[in-house]
């Protein structure tokens, strides 16, 4: 073992846990089977702290911290479940459901969708907010894949996997605020873009926003677990 390894101990939900100093609270929690909901986080990609579902309470701080980017500290006391956090997580999910057109019954990823699964895990039964129902486009110009903006939650996993793993950086975000949109190249149709057709973005997409044309009905499981494996092989471990 290298002498540089620094070990910290902390408490998560009353359980004493140990961690390497460079680990995040989310990593340590998952190692210890403590579930924290996430949508923008994906093992193997950089973290952006954007979905705000993994917010946790830290003792002696009035602020909430996203567990995906919160580095462990010695003696830290973290709470991942409380009525307040549950309320915030449910409201954030409501905001996502009301933002675009998430209709599970007609979605290719019905029953394989992370947004749907997260809502179920957080006990969300209904949405109090009015649906905004924007009319957004569907780009089917790629011979293999389809991008349906109506189901996009702007987690930017596609942007990050294309940039960090595939190295193509075809996807990016344009526009501001509620008008933000993921685009290919400088808003060229996907089929005419510099896309390599590797399909990584489709597999990491948590919803049915990016899907494979060959998958019909609601039978579109996604396999995002390849990312840490690819990283491991590249590092030659």
């Amino acid at each position: 073992m290298s002498p540089a390894v620094d070990v910290k101990t902390l408490v998560i939900d009353g359980i004493d846990v140990s961690a390497r100093a460079d680990q995040t609270v989310l990593e340590v929690a998952r190692e210890n089977n403590i579930f924290i909901p996430t949508l923008c986080h994906l093992d193997g990609l950089s973290d952006v702290g954007a979905c705000r579902l993994c917010l946790v309470e830290v003792k002696n701080s009035p602020k909430l911290f996203p567990a995906c980017v919160l580095k462990v500290e010695e003696g830290m006391e973290v709470t991942t479940k409380s009525d307040r956090l549950l309320h915030y997580r449910q409201t954030i999910l409501e905001l996502l459901f009301a933002e675009r057109n998430h209709v599970c019954s007609v979605c290719v990823t019905n029953n394989h969708c992370e947004l749907q699964a997260t809502a179920q895990s957080q006990g969300l039964t209904h949405v109090r907010l009015p649906y905004r129902s924007p009319r957004l486009g569907v780009d089917a110009s790629n011979e293999r894949f389809v991008a349906d903006q109506n189901r996009c939650i702007l987690c930017t996993r596609c942007v990050r996997v294309c940039d960090e793993i595939e190295g193509a950086h075809v996807w990016d975000v344009m526009g501001r605020g509620i008008d933000s949109m993921v685009i290919t190249d400088l808003m060229q149709p996907w089929g005419e873009s510099s896309c390599t057709r590797c399909g990584k973005c489709v597999n990491v997409c948590p919803t049915g926003a990016l899907f494979d044309k060959t998958k019909v009905g609601s039978d579109h499981p996604k396999y995002p677990d390849f990312v840490p494996y690819l990283n491991m092989m590249r590092e030659g471990r």
Binding site: C51, I92, P130, I153, R176, G177, I178, S180
Partner: peptide, 21 residues
């Protein structure tokens, strides 16, 4: 705030739009 939100995090992006409505 709604038009100047960068759109990165959900509460600011979708929350300000809902509050504006």
């Amino acid at each position: 705030c709604m038009t100047e939100s960068c759109g990165k995090c959900v509460p600011c992006r979708a929350g300000t739009a809902q509050m504006f409505d």
